[in-house]
Every structure is written in structure tokens, then in C-alpha cells.
Design a protein around this nucleic acid. Structure first.
Length: 271
DNA sequence: ATCGCCTCCTGCGCGC
DNA sequence: TGCGCGCAGGAGGCGA
């Protein structure tokens, strides 16, 4: 489920139900996540009002007066709103029960996600402080990619998936935006012209925008019983299409591992 | 600073 | 039908 568009979709989905609401109690059934759930979490937030919800990269921030909850969904996590008496399923690790008789539930089978209390300004936390600009910030531009790539030896795909370069571009959307801009994922980042980086920046924004508008991408969706799927999977050009014909040239989509991640591309359309 | 590799964990789909 | 294998939307941490 979770890449940037899925996280954004989650944020928009939960915000109306939790913003300005007060925490009645907190149920933690499993503390063993990416990092252990903060021991003092419950005592920090019970009786406190949620001032707002924000996203930074693929992190979700639930803002309180003197700190924030920093949530990451990892590979398999989701956050959903339920009635306060909702029954508990496997991998339902944390509930924030609100005084409006709803609860916000964190569910994550693989437990690569996190659910942390951050005291003070969450943007100064170690997870967020070194992140690159958001893809829609002006600071993210062809010139910046071009300049930063000069000193790098790695592939362009690894560059755009490097959160310190640009925040929140995950594997699906890296593959898709490289296809749209006609750039091979394996191409050395420092051998790409400024003009091609212009196309790439445009493609990244376009793909992310379309995916957000489609409600994200649902692929192997182990949760369709409770959650609505996203529809961007119907618009994927290369991701998970190994062996199938390219929609542009009918050539065969190939798969190659780059940076330990499956990478899909059309050898004819991308170079 | 950067690179590639490893790791955490569960679930699913495939071939035999 | 059951089992083993490979793969999965992330990203921190390691040694080199």
C-alpha cells in the first residue's frame, strides 16, 4: 500500500475524523515495530487535543501541543477510522480512541512501520531533519538534481529514491516516472542532461498527482474487506509488468534489480 | 559523503 | 493439498 500518494490519501481520509478531537485512551497491543513504540506515548497524549495532521515524505504527523506522533506505514501498514467498539483483527497493533467514539487504528502485518512520540518540533526529529524537499516544492527542480548527481556514481533510479535528495518517491512511482520521461532506470545519474532532468521532474510530479487523484495504488491488497482500494494500479505502465508489451511500442517490459529493488522498464522507450 | 548489501517481518502466488 | 521458494509498496544501519 504505502507510497507517497497512499500516505497522502490516508492523511486526507483520517483528517476530518481526528483533527480537533481529544484522545480518550490508547491501546497498544504490539510494541515491536521498526522501533519500539514510545513507552511514554499514552501518558503524553491522553486528554490532549489533536491540533492537526501533516505529511512529510511518507511520514504522517499527528500534532499535539507539546509534540507529535510520527507514523510510518512501512511496506504493509495502514491507518483507518473505526467506531470505538470495532472488533480486533490480527496485526491491529495500536488504537487511539477518541472522545467522539471513533478510533484511529494502526495495522501493520510486517511491522516495518513505526509509531513514535516526538517531543517538541517533529520536523527536527532524526527521521525528518535530513530529508530532501517534497516533490512539489520549488526547491525540487532539474538544476538541483543535475548538480547533486555530478558527485554521485549511482543510477538515476537510486538518486530519485534517495530521500535526502527528494522526499517520498518510492519504487512504483520511480519506475513509472522514469518510463514517462524515457530514461533508463539503470542510467548513471551523472550522465543525464539538464533537459532530461526537466522531463523527469515533470514526470515525477505528474505521476504522483495522478496517483493521488486516483486514491493511490492498490496491488496485492491484503485488506480489501475493510478498506477501499486505490485505482492507480490500472494506470501503471511498467511496474509489475515484466514480460508484457509496452503500451507505447509493444516491446517487452523487462525487470532488473537496481539497489535491491525490482525495476521495470521498456528497453526500447527508455535509454 | 557515498555505495552496496543486509536486515527487520508476514503473507501471497507460483511450481512441483 | 501441501510445501518450499521467491517476492513484496521502506529505509535505517553497517563496513568498506
Amino acid at each position: 500500500m504505502p507510497e507517497l500518494p497512499e500516505v497522502e490519501t490516508t492523511l486526507r481520509g483520517i483528517e476530518p475524523f481526528i483533527s480537533r478531537k481529544v484522545i480518550a485512551h490508547v491501546l497498544i497491543r504490539e510494541r515491536k515495530l521498526r522501533w519500539p513504540v514510545s513507552p511514554g506515548l499514552a501518558s503524553k497524549i491522553i486528554g490532549e487535543k489533536i491540533l492537526g495532521v501533516r505529511r512529510r515524505s511518507k511520514y504522517i504527523l499527528i500534532i499535539f501541543r507539546h509534540g507529535a506522533i510520527l507514523i510510518h506505514l512501512g511496506m504493509s501498514g495502514h491507518l483507518r477510522i473505526f467506531p470505538a467498539n470495532q472488533s480486533v483483527q490480527k496485526h491491529d497493533h495500536i488504537d487511539l480512541v477518541l472522545t467522539n467514539d471513533k478510533l484511529l487504528r494502526f495495522h501493520d502485518p510486517r511491522r516495518f512501520g513505526c509509531f513514535l512520540w516526538v517531543e517538541g518540533d517533529p520536523f527536527q526529529s532524526k527521521q525528518l531533519v535530513n530529508l530532501g524537499p517534497e516533490p512539489f516544492d520549488d526547491e525540487f527542480c532539474a538544476r538541483m538534481l543535475f548538480d547533486r548527481s555530478k558527485r554521485r556514481t549511482t543510477s538515476v533510479k537510486n538518486i530519485i529514491m534517495d530521500g535526502n535528495v527528494v522526499a517520498g518517491v518510492g519504487n512504483i512511482y520511480a519506475n513509472e516516472s522514469l518510463f514517462r520521461s524515457g530514461i533508463s532506470p539503470n542510467r548513471s545519474a551523472r550522465r543525464i542532461s539538464l533537459a532530461r532532468y526537466e522531463k523527469l521532474v515533470h514526470s515525477i510530479r505528474e505521476v504522483l498527482t495522478e496517483a493521488i487523484n486516483a486514491g493511490g495504488t492498490t496491488l496485492r491488497d491484503y485488506s480489501k474487506a475493510t478498506g477501499d482500494p486505490g485505482y492507480f494500479s490500472q494506470q501503471l505502465s511498467v511496474y509489475d509488468r515484466e514480460g508484457k508489451p509496452c503500451y507505447i511500442c509493444a516491446g517487452i517490459i523487462r525487470r532488473k534489480v537496481i539497489g535491491q529493488r525490482g525495476s521495470f522498464y521498456c528497453p526500447q522507450c527508455q535509454n
